[in-house]
């Protein structure tokens, strides 16, 4: 893929990439830092010929985030910023504030493997086949994992009483 085509591909998917990065980091500034790292990596290292470009972009993002987590010297604050970030960012949303907070807590309690697969499918709109490529797991595993993730999230939201009027 030539550089101009690659840039177009990145631009076309930038919104989804940022959202995915945000779902990994739970912090808008960190999400943009991560997105920048991903864009730099994509522009400087060619996409291998034998991979689908779209899943590759998200795989680079996931792996870059893993690298960042591994290089963090202090990780005790990463769970503390998220609620306020989400709260302040979604004032205009129609979602009830309480529900949103509970959802946010529930999301952070989802096992990471579930959260990643949900984000790729629900936020970034990837197919099961593309998600399987990103995560390098069988499609059947993607299918069962996203189903379990939804059920788990539903159970947790029930526990918090979200959606009950």
């Amino acid at each position: 893929m030539d550089k101009e085509a690659l840039k177009l591909l990145i631009l076309d998917n930038l919104k989804d990439l940022r959202r995915f990065a945000y779902s990994l980091t739970n912090d808008i500034n960190d999400a943009d830092d991560l997105t920048q790292i991903v864009v730099e990596k994509l522009l400087t290292k060619p996409i291998p010929d034998n991979v689908e470009p779209l899943p590759w972009i998200f795989r680079v993002c996931k792996n870059a985030w893993i690298d960042e987590l591994r290089s963090r010297k202090i990780r005790t604050i990463d769970d503390n910023v998220e609620v306020s970030q989400i709260e302040s960012s979604t004032k205009s949303s129609e979602i009830a504030e309480d529900n949103l907070q509970q959802l946010k807590i529930a999301i952070t309690e989802l096992p990471e493997a579930y959260r990643v697969v949900m984000s790729l499918i629900i936020i970034s709109g990837l197919s099961y086949a593309e998600t399987a490529e990103v995560l390098e797991i069988p499609i059947g595993t993607v299918m069962s994992r996203v189903a379990r993730a939804r059920e788990k999230l539903s159970q947790m939201l029930n526990k918090y009483g979200v959606g009950e009027q």
Binding site: F20, I95, I122, I123
Partner: peptide, 10 residues
């Protein structure tokens, strides 16, 4: 709700 929560970055 999940989608909207992370679309906040938009």
């Amino acid at each position: 709700v999940y989608r909207e929560a992370f679309s906040a970055i938009d």
